Amino acid sequence: MTDPLPFWRAKTLDAMTRAEWESLCDGCGRCCLHKLRDEETERVHFTEVACRLLDLESCRCKDYANRKRRVPDCVKLTPARVAAADWLPPTCAYRLVAEGRDLPWWHPLVSGRAETVHEAGVSVRGRAVAERAAGDFEDHVVSWPGRWPAGARTQTSMTKRRKSG
């Protein structure tokens, strides 16, 4: 008897229940960083400036239920928005599933632990700047939110660390 496929491999984003959809968020906080779009080229530039509702330690929204009321330009992801969003980080589970890819080893649904997203260096913990302290966002343009962290692609580094520790 074979193990059934996990829901993110068996279902499209459209077919997921609300609970399944919400559990896809790995809690990295990258999508909660402000982005700047070049008016001439339409290119997206990531910043290290976090939305004022992002808890910089947990990398979760401080008021998720009321985020749209408190931050009107907050984007509520839907399957259609995921397909159209050119600003989602490459590590985003919604993006990965939409592209037909599997979740990485550090995703809490795979690892069984919320901390692995931080241990793998995927989250904004220790890297983001609070919105109110940032000043000019253009002074905070960075490239890392648009890239995979070095140790996040494979489990090798974490496996070795756990075995030796």
Rank of each mutant, 00 (worst) to 15 (best):
C32K: 03
E119M: 11
K62D: 13
D14I: 00
E42Y: 09
A152H: 05
G112E: 06
W21I: 05
V117E: 01
S157N: 10
L36F: 01
D63S: 15
W21F: 09
T41E: 00
G126M: 06
L109A: 08
E138S: 13
T12N: 02
A93K: 03
A133C: 10
P104E: 10
S23D: 15
V122T: 07
G146Q: 04
R18D: 14
N66T: 09
G27V: 10
H34D: 06
A93D: 05
L77W: 09
W148I: 12
L33Y: 03
C28F: 02
D136P: 04
S123Q: 06
V124T: 15
V71L: 13
E40P: 00
A80K: 13
V82L: 04
V122Q: 03
F137I: 03
A130D: 13
K35Y: 02
A133H: 13
L103C: 07
A120S: 08
R113N: 14
E115P: 00
V124K: 03
R60K: 12
W148R: 05
A93L: 06
G135D: 08
D136A: 14
E42Q: 14
A120D: 07
R101N: 11
D55Q: 04
R113G: 00
K163G: 01
T91S: 14
E42T: 13
C61T: 08
A128H: 09
A83F: 00
E138Q: 13
S111G: 04
V141M: 07
W8P: 07
E57W: 05
G121E: 08
S157G: 05
S157Q: 15
T91F: 04
E115I: 13
P79T: 11
V122F: 01
R60E: 12
A150M: 09
G121C: 08
T41N: 04
L103Q: 11
E20S: 03
A50S: 09
A120W: 10
G29Y: 02
A10S: 15
H118V: 13
D136S: 12
M158K: 12
W105T: 04
E57G: 08
T47V: 01
A93Y: 05
G135E: 08
R9S: 11
D38I: 03
V110M: 06
P104C: 03
